[in-house]
């Protein structure tokens, strides 16, 4: 499938968590699928993430957290996105997210949570199929 224009995806680690094995694999898979991926790196504050999303004119933001701090940091990122008028940017979350927290994150406006063991093609097709839809 050929993209009308390639999707632009910012991937970021927020907080202090250094587990970057998953996010780097996802970055590579999305690139191989023809998307433009900006890996913003480790240890970012929610403010820095949202700044990158704005500067890069991203369609999607992928956050990776394996630290347990997702219920503090993800809502903060979503709020800052709204404040910056970036509601149209879809947000996906990956990492270790307990089952009970997933509905809460989806209700806040996260488009999808991808847990450990997610096949890479599943993430690629999710982004393709849900692009253009507005972020809640």
């Amino acid at each position: 499938m050929i993209e009308p224009h390639p999707l632009r995806v910012v991937l970021a680690k927020v907080g202090l968590d250094g587990h970057d094995r998953g996010i780097k694999i996802v970055a590579r898979a999305l690139r191989d699928a023809g998307m433009q991926v900006i890996y913003a790196g480790l240890w970012l504050t929610p403010e820095a993430v949202v700044r990158t999303v704005a500067e890069e004119d991203a369609d999607w933001l992928g956050l990776s957290l394996l630290s347990g701090a997702h219920m503090t940091l993800v809502p903060r990122v979503l709020q800052l996105l709204r404040e910056a008028g970036l509601e149209h940017v879809g947000v996906i979350v990956g990492g270790i997210i307990p089952e009970n927290d997933i509905p809460k994150l989806l209700e806040m406006g996260v488009a999808r949570v991808f847990g450990p063991g997610t096949p890479l093609p599943e993430i690629v097709s999710f982004l393709r199929e849900h692009s253009g839809a507005s972020h809640a």
Partner: peptide, 10 residues
């Protein structure tokens, strides 16, 4: 301030 949400967690 960078420790918010992570104190005592892991």
């Amino acid at each position: 301030p960078r420790a918010v949400g992570e104190v005592g967690r892991l």
